[in-house]
């Protein structure tokens, strides 16, 4: 297991390299002079030239690339002109907020979606099953930015139960903190919740018809135990394979959710930066999110091996398909 983790970690390096290259290429694809674009139409020629020099845009491309990779390797994502701060600092300011949002959404999605899928599968073709399936299909089809707006409309504007925007700090007490958190995390949880329900249901249905479930029943175990222990642990594998993808989608969804709720996270940072035409921030943040995703996938792969003793530790690639 230890060597497996180490080897998979080294496996990540090429992917991270490719991610960095992609971001570099996108940066250079900006039509026209990036410096001019960044500074906007009012900028003077001297300012633009100074910025070009500053950004290293006057160097040959391969030098720029080496420079860029070297900076990344030392954790330097560049400096924002509009915020006048290293991008790493901006990210470190915002990332915990996004993490809070994403983790609470993930918890909601898991705690609602998985049991819904289990119940649905164990009462296959019942009215309850159909309802869960219908609701979850609506869930996966949901434009969450609309859902967020609607939640604000009903629960903040009309009912006044929850604040429409912003994030509470824990200094203000737990209640306001949670009140701020509820609507955005429900918004962000919707799609993974529905996906978990669907995947759990279909893999539970597959597992429930297996012989070993009959064995478990023939031992005299009660049905709850058979389903939740014997069946669910086997059904977990497909759930884990979608988990990585869902986390990726949530990081994307966070951009929209944070915009609607003015949540001071990384998504909000990106959208603000786009408004301010501060592309360095956009690219740095996007790169950071991609790296996070790669690391999360490593963790998912490791979990995959933990729940699935059949998987051979020596072969690479488990969960990515």
């Amino acid at each position: 297991m230890g060597t497996y983790i180490i080897r998979r970690t080294f496996d990540l390096l090429p992917t991270i390299f490719v991610v960095a290259v992609i971001v570099f290429i996108i940066t250079r694809l900006i039509p026209g002079d990036p410096a001019a674009v960044m500074l906007g139409p009012q900028a003077s020629v001297e300012d633009i030239e100074a910025l070009r020099e500053n950004l290293g845009l006057n160097d040959p491309l391969y030098i720029q690339f080496l420079q860029y990779m070297g900076n990344l390797a030392t954790g330097d994502f560049g400096t924002s002109l509009t915020y006048n701060q290293p991008i790493v600092n901006l990210i470190m300011d915002r990332f915990p907020n996004t993490l809070i949002l994403a983790v609470s959404a993930l918890i909601i999605a898991f705690m609602v979606g998985v049991p819904a899928g289990i119940i649905s599968a164990s009462k296959q073709n019942s009215l309850l099953d159909y309802s869960v399936m219908l609701v979850s299909l609506i869930g996966v089809s949901m434009p969450i930015f609309w859902l967020g707006v609607m939640l604000v409309l009903y629960f903040s504007v009309n009912l006044g139960w929850f604040p429409a925007t912003g994030m509470g700090t824990l200094d203000d007490g737990l209640i306001p903190f949670i009140k701020h958190l509820i609507l955005p995390s429900i918004t962000l949880a919707t799609i993974p919740m529905a996906t978990f329900a669907r995947i759990t249901r279909s893999s539970m249905l597959e597992v429930i018809s297996q012989d070993y479930i009959k064995t478990a029943r023939s031992k005299g175990l009660n049905e709850f135990w058979v389903i939740c222990k014997h069946a669910f642990k086997n059904a977990l594998t497909p759930l884990l394979t979608v988990l990585g993808m869902q986390i990726s989608m949530m990081l994307g969804g966070a951009v929209l959710t944070e915009t609607i709720f003015s949540w001071p996270g990384m998504g909000r940072l990106i959208v603000d930066a786009i408004d301010k035409r501060d592309f360095v921030v956009v690219q740095g943040t996007v790169l950071f999110i991609a790296v996070i995703f790669v690391v999360v996938n490593l963790l998912v792969d490791i979990m995959y091996k933990v729940v699935n003793p059949r998987v051979n530790y020596t072969t690479s690639k488990g969960g990515t398909k």
């Binding site: 992917t15 990726s248 989608m249 929209l256 592309f279 991609a290």
Partner: peptide
């Protein structure tokens, strides 16, 4: 390369490309 592209959340990749 595909793995690399996959590392970007779908909508984020689209956003980044649109800024360009």
């Amino acid at each position: 390369t595909m793995d690399g592209l996959f590392a970007f959340p779908f909508i984020l990749l689209a956003i980044t490309l649109m800024t360009v």
